[in-house]
Structures are given as structure tokens and as C-alpha cells.
């Protein structure tokens, strides 16, 4: 791992509470440029909340510090800049249902980057081809399968040419036969050097694609290591318990 360069994402003492219930307990994490990090752990462990803090979809304690590419993540004018550099793919796709697939992908570059419609369309068609759904460009999201919708969502995020892509359980609401096509797209992406932080229950994907795997439980990073460390020789009892539960069913 390249540890000499400044990390692309730096998280220090990230604390988040809903009222008196603390979801994240002072998390420290660095993600290097080009790194693929998979976050695994039981539901309610805070892994989704963690990545939703990176683009400030979740507010967090003001004394916590997150920077992306050196820019501090906090409410204010700089936030739009961070968000333009951080793409996100959601569990429930969140495509815009009143726009065609093509328009979904074109919207943000035109509005945020000021790209011309012609250029945005050229780029959108190229990205749709890259995720394997070029022929669906004129359809509406509601006419596509879940797997196709999630691939559109990936293309939409990529259209902003982000430095980082966050995936929040991207395959959890898909029918089993569609999980593969989305994971294939993500695998290809990882190969192109995009920085990715992926919250997932797909252990096979994490083992195969991640540079680093993080096991979270109870709002803490319990164990961090290479896929081999985590999956073959987990040190923490909680990690072992979790892996036993998810791998032997």
C-alpha cells in the first residue's frame, strides 16, 4: 500500500450519535488514492452511517474531522465541492423516475460542472455502454430490472468523474440473479484504479476485490486488514463469530 502520499480520505475521531445513542465511537481511518476498501459487519454496526458521513449525508459531531482530497467535510460552501468529487451508489438506487436513463446520467455534469448538453450526452452514452446498458438509454428507470437500475446509478455517479465512489450495500435489494451483473461492473471499476469504499454483505466480492477489509461492530472498527488477514486468519473473536455466521449458512 502506498502510505507515503497523503490519504485521499482521512477520518479522525468520527463520532455520531442519535440523541443519546452513539452509532460511531471515534473512528480513525485513512483511504489512499486508488484503494478499494470493503466494510463488512452485522446490521446496525454503523457501516452505512460511516460512509454516509464521508459526503455528509449524515451530520456528525463537530469535533470529528473528515477530509476528502484535503477539503474538510462540513456544512457550508465547500460541501458541494466535496460532493462533486465523491460519487455514491445507494442500496435503493434512487434514480430519478421522471427522467430517462440518459437524462439521469446527464443531469449532474450539466448542472454542477456546466458541461454542455452535447458533451454530457456523449459522455453519458459512453458510460452506459461501459456498464453494459447502452441500448436502454431512452427508457425510464421504472422499465428496467433492479440490476439494470443499479448499473445506471453507477453510471450516473461516474458521470461526475469523482475521485471516490461510495457504495452503500449496492446489491442488498437486488434479486439474487442480478447481484452478479452489478458486482461485475464494480469489479471492472476497481481494476481501473478508482478509489472505492464499499459497504457490502458480499464476502466473495470483498475477498476478491478489496485491498483492505474492515470489520465493524457496535460502531467501532474491530479489525482492519487484507482480505487474507480478515477471512483466513481473523484475530478478533467477534470477527470470527460474524464470519462463521455469514459463511456457513
Amino acid at each position: 500500500m502506498n502510505t507515503s502520499a497523503a490519504p485521499l480520505i482521512s477520518i479522525r475521531g468520527l463520532t455520531k450519535a442519535y440523541g443519546t445513542f452513539t452509532v460511531l465511537h471515534g473512528i480513525d481511518l485513512d483511504v489512499a488514492e486508488g484503494e478499494v476498501v470493503c466494510v463488512i459487519g452485522p446490521s446496525g454496526s454503523g457501516k452505512s452511517t460511516l460512509i454516509r458521513c464521508i459526503n455528509h449525508l449524515e451530520a456528525f459531531a463537530p469535533e470529528s474531522r473528515i477530509t476528502v482530497d484535503g477539503i474538510r467535510v462540513e456544512p457550508g460552501p465547500a460541501l458541494a465541492k466535496v460532493r462533486a468529487e465523491v460519487g455514491m451508489v445507494f442500496q435503493s438506487f434512487n434514480l430519478f423516475p421522471h427522467m430517462t436513463v440518459l437524462k439521469n446520467v446527464m443531469l449532474a455534469p450539466m448542472r454542477v460542472r456546466g458541461t454542455t448538453p452535447a458533451e454530457a450526452e456523449r459522455k453519458a452514452r459512453e458510460l452506459l455502454a461501459r456498464v453494459g446498458i447502452a441500448e436502454q438509454a431512452e427508457k425510464y428507470p421504472g422499465q428496467l430490472s433492479g440490476g439494470q437500475q443499479q448499473r445506471v446509478a453507477i453510471a450516473r455517479a461516474l458521470a461526475m468523474e469523482p475521485r471516490v465512489l461510495l457504495f452503500d450495500e449496492p446489491t442488498s435489494s437486488l434479486d439474487p440473479e442480478m447481484v452478479g451483473e452489478v458486482l461485475d461492473v464494480m469489479r471492472k471499476l476497481a481494476g481501473t484504479g478508482v478509489t472505492m469504499v464499499v459497504v457490502t454483505h458480499e464476502m466473495g466480492f470483498a475477498r476478491q476485490v478489496a485491498d483492505r477489509v474492515i470489520f465493524m461492530d457496535g460502531g467501532r472498527l474491530v479489525e482492519v486488514g487484507t482480505p487474507a488477514d480478515i477471512f483466513d486468519t481473523p484475530k478478533e473473536e467477534r470477527t470470527r463469530g460474524f464470519l462463521r455466521a455469514v459463511l456457513n449458512h
Partner: peptide
């Protein structure tokens, strides 16, 4: 709510979120 979140994650301004989405 996901429509607001997706717009925010893309960096759309409040105005564009309202008008376009």
C-alpha cells in the same frame, strides 16, 4: 427521501434539486 439524498450526493444545489428533481 432518497431523491433528496441522491441529488445531494451528486452535488446538486438546493435550487437544482427542487427544479430538476
Amino acid at each position: 427521501h432518497g431523491q433528496f439524498e441522491a441529488s445531494a450526493a451528486l452535488g446538486l444545489s438546493n435550487r437544482n434539486t427542487m427544479v430538476d428533481v
